[in-house]
Write a protein that binds this DNA or RNA. Sequence first.
RNA 1: CGGGGCGUGGCGCAGUCCGGUAGCGCACCUGCUUUGGGAGCAGGGGGUCGCCGGUUCGAAUCCGGCCGCCCCGACCA
Length: 486
Amino acid sequence: MGNEKGLTPQAEDFSAWYNEIVQQAELASHSAVRGCMVIRPYGYRIWELIQAGLDGMFKATGHQNAYFPLFLPKSALDREAEHVEGFAPETAIVTHAGNSELEEPLVVRPTSEAIIWPIVRDWIDSYRDLPLLLNQWANVVRWELRTRPFLRTTEFLWQEGHTAHATESEAEEETRRMLGVYRTFMEDWMALPVITGLKTESEKFAGAVRTYATEGLMRDNRALQAGTSHNLGQNFARAFDVRFQTEEGEHDFVWSTSWGVSTRLIGGLIMAHGDDTGLVLPPRLAPYQAVIVPIWRNEDQKGQVLESAARLAEALVGGGIRTHLDGREGMNPGAKYYDWERRGVPVRLEIGPRDLEAGQAMVVRRFTPDGEDRKRPLSLGGITEELETLLVRMQGELLAEATERRGANTTRNVESMDTFRDVVESVGGFVFTGWCGDEGCEARVKEETKATIRVIPDEEFRSSDPPTRCLCGEASVAEVVRAKAY
RNA sequence: CGGGGCGUGGCGCAGUCCGGUAGCGCACCUGCUUUGGGAGCAGGGGGUCGCCGGUUCGAAUCCGGCCGCCCCGACCA
């Protein structure tokens, strides 16, 4: 703890800052079981808003929600060789029901490919049944050795899309489409700019042909893989015998994809925007977009102020602004200011006797672009519209700020190992380098610097004049983004 | 899973070395006075000291085992 009332500054100890903010903003707490966390109401509300935003986008792209079971027979997981190998070390296995041993152990899903495909194969007969576009909101369990709230927990909540297509190109198109959906969500809702691109073989999903990811930059200049989208080719279709009859009457295995984002996004939100005062939430994902703090000096004023504040709250809620009236007694306004700032509420409305007389409320923003006033009065007439505009603007400003920070912490055209090491150890951030394409080289650089290849970036992120050499001195076959990551 | 640190009211900690009725700050409850950037005074409530076992007349304190958390490494969304 930095001091009695504040947080440990980020610059002093980012991990400590993160843990304190999770606790003090009442996002989550630990449970009795190692690596598991309780998502508290304020944190869960953020997840609900994330869900609502993404779910709308999934539906708009033709996907339907379903729910598949938590357990799968161990034999099912074992059917796709790479998949088993990837997940075996981190699966939780149920062997008993009460006192009797089960005939076949059950695996608690670490992901649902091996549950879904044996079932869905019966839903698919012909090309007319394709594409099959499914999504499920679920919990999964991965027995991680090292856990952190939201970023990596033993059990976590996520969304997993699973689709089947008639052709390879359709599957690839779907994989890319959903990567784009994630990117849009991250930028427009989370105000988190991300680099999209392809994972290297060693970093891809176990069982995938290709894995794409979105990578965001946190305020400690480490990267966070925020979402992944996999082109599974026909790997799972072969493993689970999912065939369909083509237009020409032939039989073929379906081409499938899967894609997911998890409660890790909340960790990303915290680390992308939070400051030494506390959480900073983008308006679109803030449980409360505006909090009203009433101020009074005597009983008479208290009645009037509270009444006006309640009317104001009602008007704002009616206008679609998530609003909370903080009527707690025995707490000074100042204490409330700190409280809501720590929780990242975008806008605070102060309303007191002086404001009532002037027919206004003081509007105080959680963050502003440099040099702009945080605080100004707004007339109560038309305040809903003003706030709507303000929240939209703040959403944009937060993204702009994060994008600028990413730019300032991105280094391009690094060609030598010495320079690379220097950059990683001093600035950190995203480092664009060449890559020879060799996995051994990738592993050695990781070993030496702890920085990994995050993605082979999509075209729009590539340098206009990319490096011609890998860090090892060999000719580069692809420009890559490297960073220390969570 | 290896190395290090730590578990004492909701949170942060002292007490543990040297065994003897469990304490402090914040938070909480009641009352009064306050309230435009973390209020004051008075009174009050709450902890089988992570868990299990052992030693002892007596254990937060000593011994053994286990569990959890944090940091650093090997694996991962």
